[in-house]
Design a protein around this nucleic acid. Structure first.
Lengths: 347, 347
DNA sequence: GTTGGCACTCGATGGGGTAGAGTGCTAATA
DNA sequence: TATTAGCACTCTACCCCATCGAGTGCCAAC
């Protein structure tokens, strides 16, 4: 028990070797194998002592008496935070990204491509959230009369994305009135983020009623309805879920069902991804760290992406905890940057 | 071999009992069990003779020597076509349908609800295709200028659904020109199905150029672009896929992966569902009948649904071949009718 | 045509034995 | 004092084999 509770250089080196070995072939790693793997000329016996210490510290564990050792979540965490040597991005993959991740007319197409590339390259599942509506800016708003009190509102954001929604207004409007309302809103609010617009709208409604004429008031009232966030329309695009069926860690049907249930319910996944909106750069959840039982056997590598310097969404890769972090991390990172670039309006 | 190749009343009765029994508990059915199940007072030995005949005719088979018999696809087919006694719809389920399957502002919401009900009630997977764009009628079309030669076209169909698309035009239009074009198109084509509009548009472009003034020609030209079917935007909403993970028939991971791959690729499923657009009423694919390897262990029970007497889409249930057809069939049938009703514009 | 009897086949289950991998401990070593 | 060799021990994975039970096919009797 010489090094008890003390992580010296050698222990770390062995932990690193163990994790790398385990990630590579998925078998519990024994002392003999580790002895051959490292440059440290240590006998299996010595390594067994170190391993016992690492186990005491909760960094590795053995599935049963006569198996080797496997990293715990803390072990992976330490490995990723301090020991990982990230690989430079494969040039083929970079080429693939640059070729396919380009601006399109439809934001959803770009998002879909990004998600697919993430899953294809990593052979795990790729996920990309749609840009948060709140954070993108308004370019144009338009009202179309449907029938009686139903009005179709259409707003175009950031030059690319189009949203529409049906409003039920309290009174009837003529096409001309609607046109006028749209004109007013466009002249005043165009260019602001939707959140900012809503804020401004609420403010106007509250304290400036007397200063506005009837038409403008109507316009603002309608804008309020139109921008009501109501059911959060947050969503994501998931690709390559089926890749996850290949991993032995997830081959238990109950677990797998739970995982896929989580995917289709979306709520939990969105919540998880939202946590990464504020973090800068790549963020990783290992196994139970996510806080969701369904993801207990999975790791999630995420990175936020930005339009116009403004973080609007998150993308990531979902796979078994035993994944090639040293490749996935830089890949997720660069994909986020290129996605942001592809989504930026060409000014 | 008295009854060889001849299906008499008794054989059919026994086949029916066998299939029902097998559907109920999923175990190969033996002669003893069948002897107890039916009112025919026959000894197991006699039943064994009949079963041998049924096996010769390819209606049942035995997984191995000392197991009971299991229906083949032909067996299921005969059962469904001639022997099935459909159960009346559970009143609880009907209530659920009537309560939730109601008109909404957003067609997608209604479709989603239908899909979810299908899967929830049957505890299998539910699928509903989106209404075919081609077949719904145009209510209103509108153009919004974006930048230079990019124009946003918005069209509203059947009073409820809104589509939009970005066009790249060959020349630049002023907002007024766009407005004029829209006015023209609305006055001429409103109320026709999109397919009919496109047909008319192509015709006008071809043989009536001299009779039209410049603006109208532009309008028609733009309409052509707008309605270009291009990438078929056919799609469907799938629910409860994960229910399928519970069935032992599908518990083989490779098979399951293949099935879920088919779901996410969509192409094959859409093709399969499209085949039901022309058929009247409930249609069923049993196992390999679908022609898709991924569905070899599955059955698909479908029914087309209509808006304004016009068939526009298909819905159905996907599950293992061993499913309770006598309940699923009437349920799919009524769901299709109620979905149609919910989608019909309230005139 | 139907039935009882019977030999036979085959899958499922569980016990027992073995091989191999890897450990922890101890005593010897540098 | 840290490292190492040696060794007894443990546990899993695997295979073999015996047994059991379900169900069949066939034959002779009714």
């Amino acid at each position: 028990m010489s090094n008890n509770q003390v992580l010296n250089e050698r222990s770390l080196q062995l932990l690193k070797a163990l994790v790398e070995r385990y990630i590579q072939d998925g078998q519990p790693v024994g002392s003999r194998a580790l002895s051959k793997d490292t440059e440290l000329k240590l006998s299996p016996a010595t390594i067994r002592n170190v391993m016992a210490d690492l186990e005491d510290m909760g960094l590795i564990r053995s599935p049963h008496t006569s198996a080797g050792r496997v990293p715990t979540v803390s072990g992976y965490r330490l490995f990723i935070d301090s020991l990982l040597t990230v690989k430079p991005l494969d040039s083929e993959e970079l080429k693939l990204l640059r070729k396919n991740l380009i601006a399109k007319d439809n934001v959803n197409d770009v998002i879909g491509v990004a998600s697919r590339i993430l899953s294809d390259v990593t052979r795990m599942a790729g996920v990309v959230t749609l840009p948060k509506r709140e954070l993108v800016s308004l370019r144009h708003i338009e009202f179309l009369p449907l029938s009686n009190t139903r009005v179709l509102v259409i707003f175009v954001t950031n030059e690319q994305e189009v949203h529409n929604k049906i409003l039920h207004t309290s009174k009837q409007f003529t096409p001309a009135q609607l046109q006028q309302a749209a004109n007013y809103l466009n002249s005043v609010y165009s260019g602001l983020s939707l959140a900012a617009v809503r804020k401004a709208v609420l403010k106007e409604l509250k304290d400036a009623q007397e200063r506005m004429n009837r038409e403008m008031l109507d316009a603002v009232e309608m804008a309020k309805l139109a921008l009501d966030p109501e059911k959060s329309d947050e969503d994501y695009v998931l690709s390559g879920e089926t890749n996850l069926m290949g991993f032995s860690e997830l081959s238990d049907m109950d677990r797998l069902k739970e995982l896929f249930d989580a995917f289709s319910q979306k709520r939990g996944v969105i919540h998880l991804l939202d946590q990464c909106l504020n973090a800068e750069g790549v963020q990783i959840f290992i196994g139970e760290e996510s806080g969701y039982h369904a993801f207990e056997q999975c790791s999630l590598v995420t990175a936020p992406y930005s339009i116009n310097e403004q973080v609007v969404g998150v993308l990531g890769v979902i796979g078994p905890t035993r994944m090639a972090y040293e490749k996935v991390i830089p890949f997720v990172d660069i994909t986020a940057k290129l996605l942001g670039a592809a989504l930026n309006p060409k000014t």
